[in-house]
Design a protein around this nucleic acid. Structure first.
Lengths: 145, 145
DNA sequence: ATAATAAAGGACAACAATATCTTTTATTAT
DNA sequence: ATAATAAAAGATATTGTTGTCCTTTATTAT
């Protein structure tokens, strides 16, 4: 596994895709999203349910319904998605899983790891969900396979 | 979960502990290690078995036996432990799990993520298992809880 | 009103990670 | 040789993640 869980990976890909389609004025159905980001359809449904409950994505039921992102959602940081599925751990936790590891009581990797965590945090905080729409629409960036 | 799996976290903690004890001229039994790094004893046994097969740790059976690290093992990079349990993924994989993500076909996070991966890689390559022995012996660094 | 559509929700299945227990093998001390 | 010790190995249990399926609810179009 990579740094993030599969669940979280799907979530990020799905949100970038929905962002792009929202920008283009479309709502996206689960089937459509799953196809474009190459994820299992029903599992993705669960993921979007959770994101929807968190208010990170908007949805409408029924014909012509689907998922979309309003203006505010497009500006939210990627970090919000990640915390939904990974918790705060990835931003704050010790690299070796030690709960008492801290500045006062550091583990061997504490200092090096702090830099890694900071880099990840900065990346996820500074990146917004709608940030790549232009490149995604132009096909300069990819979300599938 | 943090960046690494629980298995990998235990492995790193155990190896740092064994390194310290080796430096002090002692071999460590599983029970002793598990207590000091706060890990489940039998599970740790499995982890050490794997590390032993990989030649990352040395062991002797029977009375006065246990695990230890020879001079060469003490200089190996932490990365060797991590690859044993996490594979290459963590050093090379796409942040959103896309197998075709690359320089030519980048995902939205590709460039930012490259930096994160590089930082992790550098940390794990540049850190040796025996590197913190002095601080560990003096109690300036911690491995438990 | 009815039928069709699509997300929400609940129940369950498959698989991998984590954890425990028991038996076997190698080594040492007596 | 025998008993004791400790890792190696195998079998099994538990839990969490990942994935599927079926029913319900909300919305739209006819």
């Amino acid at each position: 596994m990579g740094i993030f869980s599969k669940t979280c990976e799907y979530a990020m890909r799905a949100m970038f895709y929905i962002a792009q389609r929202s920008q283009e004025g479309h709502r996206s159905g689960i089937k459509e999203i799953a196809e474009h980001i190459d994820s299992p359809e029903h599992f993705l449904a669960k993921i979007l349910q959770k994101l929807s409950k968190e208010g990170l994505v908007q949805s409408i039921k029924g014909p012509n319904g689907g998922f979309y992102l309003d203006a505010k959602s497009l500006t939210r940081p990627l970090a919000d998605i990640v915390t939904t599925f990974e918790g705060e751990q990835i931003f704050t936790g010790c690299g070796m899983g030690l709960s008492y590891c801290s500045e006062e009581n550091p583990c061997p990797l504490h200092n090096d790891f702090k830099e890694v965590r900071n880099k990840i945090t900065r990346m996820l905080m500074d990146t917004t969900i709608g940030q790549f729409n232009h490149e995604l629409i132009k096909g300069q960036l990819t979300l599938n396979k």
